[in-house]
Design a binder for these strands. Structure first.
Lengths: 356, 356
DNA sequence: CGGTTTTTGGCAAACGTTTGCTATAAATTG
DNA sequence: CAATTTATAGCAAACGTTTGCCAAAAACCG
């Protein structure tokens, strides 16, 4: 029954349930129940079976089980390629927290990369329709869809994280982007700032809309016109957050009437932007206040330490997993809710009142 | 044959090979061959089958196939929890490059977390012995091993990355840690530095041994004693690279005879260290030259821009995958070679000749 | 045109589990 | 103690593929 035609006896791997059954002197089905359905089998035989299983180093075959029960125990996380770079600071935290929560629930985490090409879409669809995965957490606004097959109606439970896709019928775990940016902008206004520089990521995406919206709301509330803010970036598509900041610094240099406060939509761009404008002779926060989004640890050690809006990504990850596992457990799918986990500003020295 | 007892007709998912066969008017086996073994079936019937498959939106069930052929198509990457934080800067790059290479080879990437606890070890072993994964790339020096089952003799092809584990019989893809550090130390010596401060990660691990060894080699070559270098850190276990730097700065402050050059074993620690000593009034590189390891993009935007030894992690990832897929392809396992991909110093303004 | 090779397609047996159903043994009851 | 219930364990049929083997058909050859 052991397929290792290896060296000596000692089956280092490959013990089957049948082997365990034989060693324990019971039927295969009993072994199966003993291992999974504790109540269904006599305590004494169960002990015998467990002993046999341990002795043989038996590990149940996941694919056989998966095939039989018609479900896998892996969850995929769909990451747009750009994220790896653009928000690289938070990706590891997201993965870590999601993976940890999943494992507690008995699931595994598989990574799926979603790029612009059809290949990566097809690949994800294969995973979804091929029964390889049981659910998905998606960090992209685009749902893969290639000739007829679409992730949207794959029947797969999906929850969106970072981006609000409740409109598309997906449970979404997001932070209060708009509000957080509105508040920090209001605070800058309160400090006396009147001209702003907004460092955008990909234009028109959810984050851009929400965060820029937050800026505008704050301006309006203070009776300031939309012209008080200058947008930069928005085209580079996050490929490297750092590049956006560098380019924005050039933009900034061209401006005749300089803004006094900068609002960046990721820490990376803030960091490179600050570096460049400092080189141009500007002082932070003397000449220019800077605040950004993400809350990466490195901000604390910049000079000056960077104020940043910290996204609670660990908690968002945990929540996303909770929602996903709930959805998997339920028979009928619950309404697509938008769960908000609040970000909070970490105020540091990069913010001050404008000079005069 | 379709198990969706859903609404209308339209099977949105769940088309089986049998369905395709029926629609194409052939036997199941023919469909299987048409899809996988192009040569084995007539071009005309193949076209018919492809059309049918497309029309039904057929996606082969991965678990059924996996069970039948006895192999899965997923590779796991084993990450020690500490890495997520300690070298967070490079993790996304590693994952990205590995995943990309794997997908090209038709494989998927699963994440496995290796912490200090037995649970995570058991979990990894279950993955390995349960036939869930076909191979592993490990970024930890510890091979999971729990009551009898050990990853080492799971029969699973494994390649180690970042750490040299060729002694343990694992193919290893590493960079020339020792040499790179030796060279940069030699360069610092050439510039006139005589007293060094070494910022260590976990003491005694491969990286520590190699890199610190590189420092010592350079010292010896220049006729300097081991006392020329002061070690700091080594206990915090990388949990947060930043913390190590902070604490090291305190260490540094206590020193009566200050070193003039700092060699850090990760960018994170260098960044936080620099931040703290600058706050103490020291100037970089005026009072202190700094160089670190990793090559994270953010170093370019520190003030001053940080010299760093860039590990070619993307290339290392690709290479690791190549080796792994080779090993999977081969019948007998090849010798455990140590493949070295050279790092290179990115010299920036944080290095200069010492003052006096 | 009969005989031989080559293509092509089908049957059915795996792969290692889970689970509905049934059979037996043990326990309970009147 | 017979009759009924309950606990326990076994048989065998799935799950959706792949693939060895065989048969039929087609192509080739002398």
């Amino acid at each position: 029954m052991n397929k290792n035609k290896d060296v000596v006896g000692e089956e280092p791997s490959g013990a089957l349930m049948a082997d365990v059954a034989r060693l324990a002197g019971v039927a295969i089905s009993t072994v199966s129940r003993a291992l999974a359905n504790p109540g269904r089998v006599n305590e004494k035989t169960r002990a015998k079976i467990n002993a046999a299983a341990r002795q043989l180093g038996y590990t149940p075959n996941a694919m056989a089980r998966g095939l039989r029960v018609g479900k896998s125990n892996v969850i995929m996380i769909i990451l747009p390629g750009s994220l790896y770079y653009g928000a690289s600071q938070v990706i590891p935290q997201v993965l870590q927290s999601i993976n940890k929560s999943l494992i507690q629930g008995g699931y595994n985490l598989m990574i799926a990369n979603l790029d612009r090409d059809e290949i990566s879409e097809r690949h994800i669809l294969d995973l979804a329709f091929g029964g390889s995965v049981r659910g998905a957490i998606i960090l992209s606004s685009k749902l893969p869809e290639v000739d007829g097959r679409s992730l949207a109606n794959s029947g797969l439970p999906i929850v969106s994280m970072l981006l609000d896709m409740s409109d598309a019928g997906l449970q979404s775990v997001v932070t209060n982007d708009r509000e957080a940016v509105r508040d920090v902008t209001a605070e800058l206004i309160r400090l006396g700032h009147r001209r702003f520089f907004y460092l955008a990521g990909p234009e028109g995406n959810y984050h851009d809309v929400e965060r820029y919206g937050g800026v505008l709301e704050a301006l309006e509330a203070a009776g300031l016109s939309e012209d008080s803010v200058h947008r930069s970036g928005g085209h580079l598509d996050y490929q490297h957050g750092f590049d956006i900041g560098v380019q924005a610094a050039d933009d900034f240099a061209e401006l005749t009437e300089k803004p006094t406060a900068v609002i960046a939509t990721s820490d990376d761009m803030a960091i490179s932007f600050v570096s460049r404008v400092q080189r141009m002779g500007l002082s932070i926060p003397g000449d220019l206040s800077v605040v950004s989004f993400d809350g990466s640890p490195v901000c604390e050690f910049c000079s000056p330490p960077l104020s940043t809006i910290k996204q609670p990504v660990e908690e968002m990850g945990r929540t996303a997993v909770d929602l996903l596992l709930d959805a998997i457990g339920q028979r009928e799918n619950t309404a697509a809710v938008r769960t908000v986990i609040r970000s909070s500003l970490i105020p540091r020295e990069s913010i001050a009142a404008p000079k005069s």
